[in-house]
Design a protein around this nucleic acid. Structure first.
Ligand code: SF4
Ligand code: SF4
Lengths: 166, 166
DNA sequence: CAAATTTCAGATAAACTACTCTTAATACAA
DNA sequence: TTGTATTAAGAGTAGTTTATCTGAAATTTG
C-alpha cells in the first residue's frame, strides 16, 4: 500500500468531519464508531493532525476534534503529509536512498511523471470536495468491518451485522 | 512505499540480468554483491521468480539464475505480480476491503484513473527497455549502501566506501 | 568417488507496523 | 466540590516484514 494504515484512517476521519453539515467538535469515539476504526488507535492518529495544526481539539464533555480551517482550505495532501510525512510524493517506486536526476535508475523518467500527477491530484483535492462526495448516495467512508477481535468475530459469525457503518 | 522491499529487490535483480550482454546463468551471489542486497534474502526473493516461471535456475558450479524468456517478453508488472501479488494495481489508495464501483469512496474516480495509468506503464515497460537504460551512462541500479549491519556501519565511519556498487 | 559451488528449504532473530491498554490531564455539569 | 466525559501520552502486545543463519540437495570439476 502506498499509504500506511494510520494515514488512511486519518484521511477517512478528515473526510468524515468535512462531510458534516457544520464544522463542530466531534468526539473521536463517534468518528471511530462510524468508521469502524479502533478508538485508541484513531486517537493517536488524530493527535498527529492536531499537532500539525489541521485539527483543533477540546477536552472534556462535549469536546472532541474539529477542522482547524475551512474544509476548502485543507487538501488531501495536507492530511497525508501530516501523518506519513511529505516523502510519500517524493520517494520513488523503488525507495532507493539518495535518488535524483543526476544518478537515476532506469525507471526514473517514467515514474516521476506519474508521481507528480499523483501529487498534483492530492494537493488540489480538498476536504470540502471529498466531504461533498461522501454525502452523495452510494458513497461510503467506513471500513467494511473494522479491525477484528475475538468478540467481533463471534458477533459476525452469529449473524450480527455492525449497524454503526455509514 | 507502494512496493515491498522484497519486490524492489526482485525488480532490481531482474533489470540487472536484463542489462547483461547475453542471457546466461548468473549466480545470486554476484547479483547480491553488485546490488548491495543481502545474499540470503535475495535468494528467497528470486525463488519466487523462478517458481513463477520468470527465471530458470541451475544448481552447482557455474549455475545460477537466468531469465526464462527474452527480456522483451517480461514486463515490470510481471515481476511485481510474482512477488507482491497482482493486488498492487488493483487495490486502492485507501486499501479498503470490498471496494468497487457500486460502493465507492469519495476519491475513487480520481484514484482509478491514476491507478490504471500506473498499471499500463508497468505492463508495457519491458525488462529489455529497462536493461538498456541501465547500461547507459549515469544510470544506476544498486542500493547506495545496502542493508546496514554494525560491521558495515563501522567501516563507513572509518571512510571505507563499499566498492561493490555499480 | 570426493570436493567445491550453487540453489533450495526451513529455522531463527531483529525491526517495524498495527493495535491495545493504562494512566494522566482537562473541562464541563450537577 | 465531585463525578464524568473527553483528549493526551505513553507503555505494552501481537503480527508481519525483513534479514540472517544453517543444513540439505543438486551439479560440476578433478
Ligand atoms: S532514480 Fe528515480 S525512479 Fe529510480 S529509484 Fe531513484 S527516484 Fe526512484
Ligand atoms: S472506492 Fe475506490 S478509491 Fe475508495 S477505497 Fe475503494 S477502491 Fe479505493
Amino acid at each position: 500500500m502506498l499509504l500506511s494504515k494510520s494515514c488512511v484512517y486519518g484521511v477517512q476521519a478528515a473526510i468524515y468531519m468535512a462531510s458534516l453539515p457544520r464544522n463542530e467538535y466531534v468526539s473521536i469515539q463517534e468518528i471511530a464508531g462510524k468508521l469502524n476504526i479502533s478508538f485508541h488507535f484513531l486517537t493517536k492518529v488524530l493527535q498527529n493532525l492536531t499537532q500539525a495544526g489541521l485539527l483543533v481539539s477540546y477536552r472534556g464533555p462535549n469536546g472532541g476534534v474539529a477542522l482547524a480551517r475551512h474544509s476548502s482550505a485543507i487538501s488531501l495532501a495536507d492530511v497525508i503529509d501530516s501523518i506519513d510525512g511529505s516523502d510519500v510524493f517524493k520517494e520513488c517506486l523503488f525507495g532507493l536512498p539518495g535518488c535524483g536526476v543526476a544518478d537515476p535508475c532506469p525507471a526514473h523518467e517514467h515514474w516521476t511523471t506519474m508521481r507528480s500527477r499523483l501529487h498534483h491530484l492530492c494537493s488540489t483535492l480538498t476536504l470540502e470536495e471529498l466531504g461533498k462526495r461522501a454525502n452523495q448516495l452510494n458513497v461510503r467512508l467506513a471500513n467494511a468491518h473494522g479491525p477484528m477481535n475475538p468478540a467481533k468475530l463471534l458477533a459476525t459469525m452469529n449473524g450480527n451485522v455492525d449497524a454503526t457503518a455509514v
